[in-house]
Amino acid sequence: MSEIYTLIEHRQGEIRDISFELLSCGRKLAEKTNSNLTALILGHNTENLVGKIKSQAHRILVIDSEVFKDYNSESYQLALSDIIKKANPFITLMGHTAFGMDLCPALATQLEIPFTTDCLDIDVVDNKITVTRQVYDGKLNAKIAVRDNPSYLFTVRAGCFLAEESDLKTEIANIDTSVTEPDYRKFVEYIETPAGDVDITKSDVVIGIGRGIKEQENLAMVEEFADAIGGVVACSRPIVDADWLPKDRQVGSSGKTIKPKLYIAVGISGAFQHVSGMKGAETIIAINKDPNAPIFNEADYGIADDLFKVVPVLKEKVMELK
């Protein structure tokens, strides 16, 4: 029977959400291809981690060693290349995350197996694989055919598969390893973003500003609106890149994940890295002059107009109604 492998991602002792999504995706693929699903955990003191994903796969393969406590693509690659070469699973999945992006291309290249990244969906028909990806700033999707091979490696975008319960009978196996951290790439430490004066995860109303704001001086206009509606100002990544707001105001995959009652995206295009941080908001509003901006796919209400015209009036209207 063929095998689907999913690599479990964890950090600082916690399994990351993407891992549960990958398990969902893996189960779907396993069902479709009549395969077994194996979850791979590389870590240290893994009992806790294993417990969290039990019943989610047919088998959990555990490689427990001090060296895997923190992710390091090079030591992971040393271990995984061995395992995959031996087992030759049909498909190996990992998240399209800082972890998967760093590991997948190198591992697949070493193993000389076809791979692709940032898959929204993976379809298998008669052992032929097509994946769906997003291109051109999220404005289009692409169906991609993958070269024929007995084994594949893919990274899957967060948020594309729903984490679901399951009650598979799970067999647990351990593999020993002699891998040590190579001298050419050493993990030193994690560094946290220093916390600022505002915690955007705690506010019911968050106004997110993006590159459409054009320059730092215009922040004042949004701050005034935020004051009027009783919310806080957060932002997309380019605003942090430009040093207009501190890192702890950034919403998205490399920033914060927020779940406010109301999120208002102002001049934000809606890249998935941003959306993944705010799609849990109860009500989402988008103000963007481009009616085809992907953000409108996420919004409940949209205004396709110039933010500089809308926001000041909106402030006035809100003040009137308050």
Binding site: R11, D70, N72, T97, F187, V188, Y190, S254, K256
Partner: peptide, 11 residues
């Protein structure tokens, strides 16, 4: 990395 976390490496 995600969530504002960074990883310090020595290569």
């Amino acid at each position: 990395l995600e969530g504002g976390l960074m990883e310090h490496l020595d290569i």
